[in-house]
Simulated assay, not measured.
Amino acid sequence: MNNRETFRLLVIGFISLTIVIGIGRFLFTPILPYMEIGTSQSFSALGMLATWNYIGYFIGAFAARTIQPSGTSIIILLVTNGLMTVLMGLMDNYFMWVLFRLLSGISSGFIFVFATNLVLGRLVQLNQTQYSGYLYSGVGFGILLSGGFTPFITNSVNWSFTWLFFGLISLLLTVIVAFMMNVVPRDKTETTFTAQVPSKYHSKKKKIALYLSYLLEGFGYIIYATFITGLLANNNVSFEPSYIWAIVGLGAIPSCIVWSWLGKKISASKALKYAYFIQILAVFIPVLSQHLLLIVLSAFLFGGTFLGIITLTMNISKQFKDSKNLVSGLTAIYALGQIIGPSVASLFIEFIHFQFSFLLAGFALVLSFIIVAASFTSNAPFHSKFNRD
């Protein structure tokens, strides 16, 4: 496969993650305050819709371990995800919303695992992991779109139309993916899925540490990602809370590229520690103040780290034996953290206060940082020879 085909794979992955994560999952964050006002549902009930989405994500990521993807299956999953977003705007029934968010999550989990194995596997083969950030930047691009346009569209029409609008955008993007999937030769694409690369890490303790840290990351980051706009709306801030989600997207788009480069330069494990430390600061800032400048800083730092942590963790995972199943397992454990996070946070929000849920998220991330710092102590760069840590 030549460099042009590798570029096409990156574009396919970028657009796919824009559809299923940036829009399919994270459109819910800026639209949540509008749904609370425009529906008869409580904030905690609406928050549970996020949990159902993450349950679906867990199912999809776990099931992806045993399925060999094809171009056709990827397109079907992308179409399914876009349709679920459209249906969220066409139906006004809570139990149907649960079903739509569940199916959206299932398709997201499948696509994330497939895209990571397809694209990152190819980059590891070529020793070009510094480009892995372009794949995950698709999530940031989707967040920027949803955060930037949701307030305008919703205030101009209503929240239902916003779901419909972004669902149609997702389906249009799927057409582009379908076209590009036809350009990449099928046999070479399947080779990329199944190719094996040399192993750097062999320790079971490191694998367990990676699982535990990623579980806690899923738990901690998703509380911020789901409820930051709700926290700001609840505190009656003087600015439009949903625009803050666009700031997250602005930080997220370049972050993956920067963290991929840094991981290549100083080692993925060392860069991962820095990313966790910065994210901890980002999550604690809204607890201390809702001043506009500090919230913008918090959102930018959060956007600048949460995708970086995904990128670096996936890069590290590709250095373990049987990395394909590890990618799926990590994605599933991450989803488990995302299932637990909003559920617990909703209880704190309902019965105590918003700020306590963010404190809980911050402490979870502190534990994750400690686990990574204690378990990955190598200073060897990511691109060095594959020796044992």
Rank of each mutant, 00 (worst) to 15 (best):
E5G: 01
T6W: 00
F7I: 13
L9A: 09
V11L: 14
I12F: 12
I12Q: 08
I12S: 11
I15W: 06
I19K: 04
I21Y: 05
G22F: 10
I23F: 01
F26R: 08
P30K: 04
M35N: 02
G38A: 15
T39A: 10
T39Q: 00
Q41T: 10
F43S: 14
A45T: 09
G47N: 07
G47A: 06
G56L: 10
Y57M: 02
A61D: 06
A63S: 13
A64E: 06
S70I: 02
T72S: 15
I76Y: 10
V79H: 03
V79G: 00
N81C: 14
L83P: 08
M84L: 09
T85E: 04
M88F: 08
M91V: 15
M96L: 15
M96K: 11
V98S: 12
L103M: 15
L103P: 06
S104A: 15
G105M: 05
I111M: 11
I111D: 07
A115Y: 00
T116G: 13
L123E: 12
Q125V: 10
Q128I: 02
Y134H: 09
Y134T: 10
F141M: 14
G142E: 03
L144V: 05
L144T: 12
L145D: 10
S146H: 00
G148L: 06
P151T: 03
P151V: 02
F161A: 13
L168N: 02
S170Q: 07
I176F: 10
F179G: 01
N182W: 04
V183S: 14
V184D: 07
E190A: 05
T191C: 01
T192Y: 08
K200V: 10
K205M: 14
K206N: 13
L212R: 00
S213I: 07
G218W: 01
F219Y: 13
G220P: 06
Y221N: 09
Y224T: 07
T226H: 07
G230E: 10
A233E: 08
N235P: 06
N236S: 09
V237F: 11
S238W: 02
W245V: 09
I257P: 07
G263K: 07
G263I: 08
K264V: 14
A268M: 03
S269N: 15
K273S: 03
K273A: 03
Q279I: 10
I280A: 06
I280V: 13
A282K: 12
V283C: 03
V287R: 01
L288F: 15
L292M: 10
L293D: 07
I295N: 08
S298Y: 00
G303N: 05
F306E: 09
L307G: 08
L307N: 13
L312C: 05
N315H: 02
N315I: 14
N325Y: 01
L326H: 11
V327H: 12
S328G: 12
G329L: 08
T331I: 06
I339K: 01
G341D: 02
P342F: 03
A345H: 05
F354H: 12
S357H: 03
S357D: 03
F358S: 04
L359P: 00
V366I: 15
A373S: 15
S375P: 07
T377S: 11
N379A: 07
P381K: 14
K385G: 08
F386A: 15
